[in-house]
Design a protein around this nucleic acid. Structure first.
Lengths: 240, 240
DNA sequence: CGAGAGGTTGAGCAATCTCAACGGGGGTGG
DNA sequence: CCACCCCCGTTGAGATTGCTCAACCTCTCG
């Protein structure tokens, strides 16, 4: 799969501002790389696209590739045999995935929106990593904040009520989308995805959102646009 | 707080076999360090002890130190303002903690059993890290497996029933303690800790264990010794 | 021996789930 | 262009798991 077309909005290093240096390269990694390193990265990477619903890889498959997202949203999830699903995270432009040091992927990854990403053969990536310690530091920082987010999510799943979960979720999205206090939040994922992320059923998600609307905590525009009139009010519902 | 007494069972690099090189040093990090590096590490570290119930640090405090556990068990947890608690993990000899790249600790840490650990000033540790890229790789590997464990726990908290949670928990402990199929598992933590780890109440934990005993899935000897006659049976209860 | 902490058990309750009906929007085929 | 269908989301009613509150038990410690 080769490069196809210009990159619209590559985001670098998890930062929000697209970085000129990788704009033309469809790379999300360019953290502290110098020009020469960046070229070597480009050489090791190929670009790819996914449509909503398409699977990037399944839990348990041999982890032969690593990816960085340059556009769109991907969900990560784990399944029990009877089909119960837990979504462990939503990734956005600038995020890495597949950084498994084990032999196989420990989760499945599927596109939520149309996605553009950059693939590395695992071995090649690890070789590059070897030679660029500053990149390793960057990855360690990412892993560390992902871990913090995971612990936050454990608190949510283990101890928060449905109301609190939804409130927490909406606030987190608002922050991630850098929405001003007046701007709406866009839910790019389905109710079913939200439910499986929050450890609830779609019915409970739906009911809880309806109640929040009725109470005036949020306004809904269509199914996926959410206005939050008073963020502090929502924060107090979120329980933190 | 200086060194006090001989080290009984330091565990290295998260591996299970104590390593001679750090036995005398009360260090858990000696991964791929050569003799000189190890000496520098010893120089940067001080040793400490904690009694059960003592707190190492609280969520939100400035993260000025990092630790590696050489003996005993520590629990990590997060709180909501009303006191609801989620334990996000139990650490054992060889584990790191406090590896926050942010300014503050993102969780609290408290001793479950008597604990022996090794403290580093954060700045000193990061400096050492800078100079020992192989150590950084080691930490990245640890972070990556912690992340995998966190995702497994999200699946548990979001989607498993009380029975499945307990079964999963017992199996995980059995593995961590490398118990043969006949040997009992030791629950070093209280029912309340187990409940807060599994997102349940102590009553549900107690009832569920009783039921498992009644059904013959486990045998209890006192409050904390658990025999698992048939691990596969328990695995099938665990739902994976 | 009494007090307190930790654990178990019981009864009733409540939050969330399950099952089911219904509605709207978008795509498709006649 | 319209009718139909299907997917997704919403709403309702009843079931169920796990929680709350309370009693009781056991062990340890003073």
């Amino acid at each position: 799969m080769g490069r196809n077309g210009p990159v619209m909005n590559p985001v670098c290093c998890g930062a929000q501002v697209p970085c000129d240096r990788c704009k033309a390269r469809d790379l999300a990694v360019c953290a502290v790389l110098d020009e020469q390193e960046l070229q070597r990265f480009s050489a090791a990477a190929t670009s790819a696209r996914l449509e909503p619903g398409q699977t990037l890889f399944h839990e348990g498959e041999p982890a032969e590739e690593m990816f960085s997202l340059t556009e769109g949203m991907i969900k990560l999830y784990k399944l029990l045999q009877d089909g119960r699903r837990q979504i462990t995270g939503f990734l956005m432009a600038g995020d890495f995935l597949g950084l498994a040091f084990g032999r196989t992927y420990v989760y499945s990854a599927e596109a939520v929106t149309p996605v553009r990403l950059c693939r590395f053969r695992r071995a090649a990536f690890l070789r590059l990593l070897e030679e660029m310690p500053h990149l390793e530091r960057n990855l360690l920082g990412r892993a560390s904040s992902e871990l913090a987010a995971a612990q936050e999510q454990m608190l949510l799943l283990g101890r928060k009520t449905a109301r609190e979960r939804l409130a927490t979720f909406l606030l987190a999205i608002a922050e991630r989308q850098h929405r001003g206090d007046r701007e709406p939040v866009e839910l790019l994922m389905s109710r079913s995805d939200i439910a499986d992320y929050l450890g609830l059923t779609i019915e409970t998600v739906s009911r809880t959102l309806s109640t929040m609307r009725r109470v005036g905590a949020i306004t809904l525009d269509g199914k996926s646009r959410v206005y939050i009139p008073d963020r502090d009010a929502l924060r107090s519902i979120a329980g933190l």
